[in-house]
Design a protein around this nucleic acid. Structure first.
Length: 279
DNA sequence: ATGGGTACCTGTCTGC
DNA sequence: TGCAGACAGGTACCCA
């Protein structure tokens, strides 16, 4: 589920509300993708710092109580395919898919994740394992000014796969998952089967612009809710209503009137318009 | 080094 | 109605 826009919307709705909260209780449900990596009790009494984001990972800094400072570090949180974070004021009964809960002085933070591909991992810092290892293969942030059409073009020249797989891999630019890669390629007029090393600099420029516009538009709309994504207030996103190709196989392309196609690339569905998108 | 396939897990939808 | 099978927004890991 959650791609960069959904993770960013989650961060935006949580960061200020949780900042300065004190952790009062921790509850674990079924195992997630990786173990927490510390005793849950070690989090008790810590203070929540300002939440950050790297790619699709959230970083919640936790500081130990002064002057002892027993715990210092944070939680690296990934929402996997089906995860979402909610913050509720009054404690409510945990559901069958609530697998991590942090009761704080500012409410209870709860990770709900039916498929359990998500993770909550303790790390002393972002540049120390396990966080450093998990983040080590991530490419630049999409809005990083250091990422330019030229640098993208250079990186793509060394690849022989199709552009869809390369963007999804997340080492050229992080954040665009299956939905937004399809949408960005449509916006850029590039066929998802196009070979990376054949894309001109001009098309890389269009592509980078399309990735940035697609992601920022999705953030502004509160993300996409295909099945179950909710932000921390329980609100659905609205981006999926204006998706041009994703999930629209067989429908008419709004731009050229051709038929939107669905193919499978690397075990993942890809949607595109063969009229608008060229190799 | 790169690229392709697999695994992780559960809910929902489709077609017989 | 029941059931089997396909499919779903991610990504680490293994192997060629």
């Amino acid at each position: 589920m959650p791609e960069l826009p959904e993770v960013e919307v989650t961060r935006l709705t949580l960061a200020e509300r949780l900042r300065g909260a004190r952790v009062e209780a921790v509850r674990m449900g079924k195992p997630l993708r990786w173990p927490l990596g510390c005793a849950p009790e070690a989090l008790l009494g810590t203070w929540v710092g300002l939440m950050g984001r790297r790619g699709k990972y959230l970083w919640m800094p936790l500081e130990g109580p002064a002057p002892a400072c027993t715990a210092r570090g944070g939680l690296l949180i990934h929402l996997g395919m089906s995860g979402s974070l909610g913050l509720c004021d009054a404690p409510t009964q945990a559901g069958p898919h609530d697998h991590f809960e942090l009761a704080t002085t500012r409410g209870t933070l709860r990770l709900t994740d039916p498929r359990r591909f998500g993770a909550v991992v303790w790390s002393e810092a972002l540049d120390v394992d396990p966080a450093a290892r998990l983040l080590s293969n991530l490419g630049p942030e999409p809005f990083d000014p250091a990422l330019t059409p030229r640098s993208l073009h250079q990186a793509l020249r060394r690849r022989r796969t199709h552009i869809k797989a390369a963007l999804l891999a997340g080492d050229l630019v992080v954040g665009a998952g299956n939905i937004y890669v399809s949408e960005a390629l449509f916006q850029a007029g590039i066929d998802p089967r196009a070979r990376c090393d054949r894309l001109s600099l001009a098309r890389c420029e269009k592509l980078l612009r399309a990735v940035r516009e697609t992601l920022s538009r999705a953030i502004a709309l509160g993300g996409s809710t295909l099945r179950d994504f909710r932000d921390a207030h329980g609100m659905s996103g609205a981006f999926q209503q204006e998706a041009a190709v994703y999930g629209r196989a067989g429908q008419a392309c709004a731009r050229c009137g051709g038929v939107v196609r669905r193919i499978v690339q690397g075990q993942r569905a890809t949607y595109f318009c063969s009229g608008c998108q060229r190799r």
